[in-house]
Simulated assay, not measured.
Amino acid sequence: MKLKLFCSTLLLAVAGIAAPASAKVEEIRLGYVDNIRDDHGEIVEGKHSGGNVEFEIVSSSPDFLNIIGSPRPYLMGSFATNDEGVNFGGFGVLWRWEFADGWALEPGFGYIIHDGEIDNPFADGTPEAASFEADNQLLGSEDLFRTTFALEREFGDRFAAQLYWQHMSHGQILDSGRNQGLDYVGLRFSYRLDPDPAD
């Protein structure tokens, strides 16, 4: 597991350093999300209360991504506002479709590593195990897929606001077993260094 986490961290670092020369930073984003504590479709009370502050950098789409619709790569970090939260960071790609003047939809897909709980360290059936599971979502893997969907409203050429949702889980692909996942909903604001974002 430690080797897997090390390799995942190394992959994140390489992705950030080895960004294609043809891509340039287009947007800087700052947001706040709250964990809706979704566990396989059911709201789980009392787990990971509190929100996260998120920072994201979005670049232009490099030419080699044209084959999948020219999504824009991003790097992001999410930082819990209290000790009960989960910190995570990662990278991925975002597609953007403007459907009306000043309005756009933005689906995305990525990969993150996190510091949340993976498995229950206590023996099944013990009071300690029940208490631990009542307080923690068991994510099953140190690295997770991140799926996002945002509704964007532009304010002029350089500013925008987004209402967005994100779901993180290993999907039984990165690992097997427990996979309660994390779901967050929030609001973020964007500043565009390039006033003409991808359509």
Rank of each mutant, 00 (worst) to 15 (best):
K4S: 14
F6K: 11
C7F: 03
C7P: 01
T9D: 06
L10M: 12
L11N: 02
L11P: 02
A13I: 15
A15C: 14
I17Q: 06
I17D: 05
A19P: 01
A19N: 04
P20T: 00
K24M: 07
E26T: 15
I28Y: 09
R29P: 09
G31I: 15
G31T: 09
Y32Q: 08
Y32K: 00
V33C: 09
D34Y: 12
N35W: 09
I36N: 07
R37G: 15
D39A: 12
D39N: 10
H40K: 04
E42N: 10
V44T: 13
E45N: 14
G46M: 10
K47C: 14
K47Q: 15
K47N: 12
S49A: 13
S49K: 04
G51A: 13
N52H: 06
V53I: 14
V53K: 00
V53C: 07
F55C: 08
F55T: 05
V58H: 02
S60T: 15
S61W: 07
S61P: 15
P62A: 11
P62C: 08
N66R: 10
I67C: 08
I67W: 04
I68E: 03
S70M: 01
S70C: 02
R72T: 15
R72D: 06
P73W: 02
L75A: 15
M76Q: 01
M76R: 00
G77C: 02
S78N: 00
S78G: 00
T81I: 11
N82C: 12
N82R: 00
D83P: 04
D83A: 13
E84S: 15
E84K: 04
V86T: 10
V86G: 09
N87Q: 08
F88D: 14
G89A: 15
G90T: 05
F91P: 12
R96D: 13
R96Q: 11
E98L: 09
A100E: 09
G102S: 10
W103T: 07
A104P: 10
G108T: 14
G108R: 12
F109R: 03
G110M: 10
G110N: 07
I112C: 14
I112E: 10
E117A: 14
N120D: 11
N120K: 03
F122A: 09
A123C: 04
A123L: 13
D124N: 10
T126R: 04
P127F: 00
P127T: 02
P127W: 01
A130S: 13
F132G: 05
A134W: 06
D135I: 02
D135H: 09
L139Q: 02
L139F: 03
G140Y: 01
E142M: 10
D143Y: 09
L144G: 13
F145V: 02
T147E: 11
T147K: 00
T148R: 01
T148H: 01
F149T: 00
A150G: 14
R153M: 04
F155E: 02
G156C: 11
R158A: 13
F159D: 07
Q162Y: 03
Y164V: 00
Y164H: 12
W165H: 07
H167F: 08
Q172R: 01
L174Y: 10
L174R: 06
D175N: 14
S176K: 02
G177C: 13
N179R: 01
Q180E: 13
L182V: 11
L182N: 03
Y184V: 03
Y184M: 14
V185E: 07
L187A: 06
R192N: 06
L193V: 13
L193T: 04
A198S: 12
D199G: 05
